[in-house]
C-alpha cells in the first residue's frame, strides 16, 4: 500500500504480531504477520477458523488483550496514531466514542443485576449523551417500547433482543468503527439475519465502519464489502467480498468455500480439508497452509510473495495454477 492511500484509511494494521508470554519456554506468536486496512464507513470481515488469530487481532485493536498477550511487532494505525505503542490511557479514551465492540454472547457481556437503562447510561456517559438520545437509539435498534426496555434486566430479554441492546450500547457514542466478534453465532438463522441487517442499516446511516469477525461465510457475504481471510495468524487473502468468494486467489479460501454444504447440494461427499489447522508452535517461514494444500510444492517452504492485482491481494506461490483450475471447473 502506498503512503497516499494510507492517509485515507481509518485503521491500518500492518505486520501485526501478538505474542503469548510463557514461563518456561520462548514466546509464542498467536498472530504473526497480519495486515489489512479499513476505510471510513467500510464494512470489512475477518474470516478464519478457530486458532487463526482473528479474534486476537480484533482484541488487539481494542487494546483488550488478555494479560499474557502483548503486541510484539507491527503497527495498528488509527487515524494517524499507532495503537500498538499507545499508552493504555490513550486507547481507553478511544473506546466508546471512536471504537466500540460487540461480542458473541450478549448474556455474558451484560451485567445480569443491572437494568438495561443503567447499563446504557453508563455507556453513554463517556460520550456525553443524554437520556433522550438513549431512548432514540433503542428505538432505532428496533424496540417498540424503549421506556419499558430501560427498566428490564438482561434475563428478561431474548438472545436477539440482548444483541440489539449491545448494538445500541456500542453505537450510542457514534463511534467511527464497530468491532463485532462473531455477533450472530449464538443466534438462530432468522434472528441472525435480522441482527445483521440492523448492523448494516445503522452502519450505512451513521457512516460507521464495521469489522466483523466470523467463521461463517454466509454471514460475511451478506454484510461485508471486503473480506480478509486469515489462516494461522496471517491474512492470506484480501479483496471485495463478491470477487473473493466467487474467484478465490488462495487455495485455503477455495477449500473453505467448497467444504461448506450448500442448499440443494447434490454432492455425495463434501470436499474436506485434510488435517487440522497447525498450532502456533508449528508455524514457520513458509506458507502455513502447505501441509494441507493440494497445490503445495517444495517451493512453498519459502515465504510466498504477496501478489497484488487491482483491489485483490493474496499470498500463494501457485496463484496461476489455482486460477487455471478454476477456469476448467464448472462453477458450483
Amino acid at each position: 500500500m502506498t503512503a497516499e492511500t494510507a492517509a485515507q484509511e481509518l485503521l491500518t494494521v500492518k505486520d501485526l504480531r501478538v505474542s503469548a508470554t510463557r514461563r518456561e519456554s520462548q514466546d509464542l506468536h498467536v498472530v504473526d504477520g497480519a495486515s489489512f486496512s479499513i476505510a471510513p464507513g467500510e464494512r470489512a470481515a475477518l474470516v478464519g477458523e478457530s486458532g487463526s488469530g482473528k479474534s486476537v487481532t480484533c482484541f488487539s485493536v481494542m487494546g483488550l488483550l488478555a494479560q499474557n498477550l502483548r503486541v510484539s511487532g507491527g503497527s495498528i494505525r488509527w487515524r494517524g496514531n499507532d495503537l500498538a505503542t499507545a499508552k493504555r490511557e490513550e486507547i481507553r479514551r478511544l473506546r466508546g466514542p471512536e471504537i466500540a465492540m460487540i461480542y458473541q454472547e450478549p448474556l455474558t457481556s451484560l451485567n445480569p443485576l443491572m437494568t438495561i437503562g443503567y447499563q446504557l447510561k453508563e455507556a453513554a456517559r463517556r460520550s456525553k449523551v443524554g437520556r433522550r438520545e438513549i431512548l432514540e437509539m433503542l428505538d432505532r435498534v428496533g424496540f417498540a417500547d424503549p421506556r419499558r426496555i430501560m427498566g428490564q434486566r438482561p434475563h428478561e430479554l431474548s438472545g436477539g433482543m440482548r444483541q440489539r441492546v449491545m448494538i445500541a450500547m456500542a453505537l450510542i457514542g457514534q463511534p467511527k468503527l464497530l468491532l463485532a466478534d462473531e455477533p450472530t453465532t449464538a443466534l438462530d438463522v432468522t434472528i441472525q439475519s435480522q441482527v445483521l441487517k440492523l448492523m448494516y442499516d445503522l452502519s450505512y446511516e451513521m457512516g460507521t465502519a464495521v469489522l466483523i469477525v466470523s467463521h461463517d461465510l454466509s454471514v460475511v457475504r451478506k454484510l461485508s464489502d471486503t473480506i480478509h481471510v486469515m489462516y494461522a495468524g496471517q491474512v492470506v487473502e484480501s479483496g471485495p467480498t463478491d470477487s473473493v468468494l466467487s474467484q478465490p486467489r488462495h487455495p485455503y479460501t477455495r477449500a473453505l468455500l467448497s467444504s461448506a454444504p450448500r442448499l440443494g447440494d447434490t454432492r455425495e461427499r463434501l470436499e474436506s480439508i485434510p488435517g487440522i489447522v497447525p498450532t502456533p508452535d508449528q508455524w514457520d517461514a513458509g506458507c502455513r497452509f502447505r501441509s494441507r494444500c493440494p497445490l503445495a510444492t517444495e517451493r512453498c517452504a519459502e515465504t510466498p510473495p504477496v501478489d497484488v492485482v487491482a483491489d485483490r491481494s493474496s499470498a500463494c506461490w501457485h496463484v496461476d495454477q489455482l486460477l487455471a483450475e478454476q477456469k476448467e471447473a464448472t462453477p458450483l
Binding site: 438463522v189 439475519s193 435480522q194 441487517k197 461465510l217 454466509s218 454484510l223
Partner: peptide
C-alpha cells in the same frame, strides 16, 4: 423464510430480512 434467510443475498444488493419478530 428459512431458505431465504440462509441464501445469502448481500444487503447491498437488496438482500432482505424475510422474517420479522421472534
Amino acid at each position: 423464510a428459512l431458505i431465504t434467510s440462509s441464501e445469502a443475498v448481500p444487503f447491498r444488493d437488496g438482500g432482505t430480512v424475510e422474517l420479522q419478530g421472534e
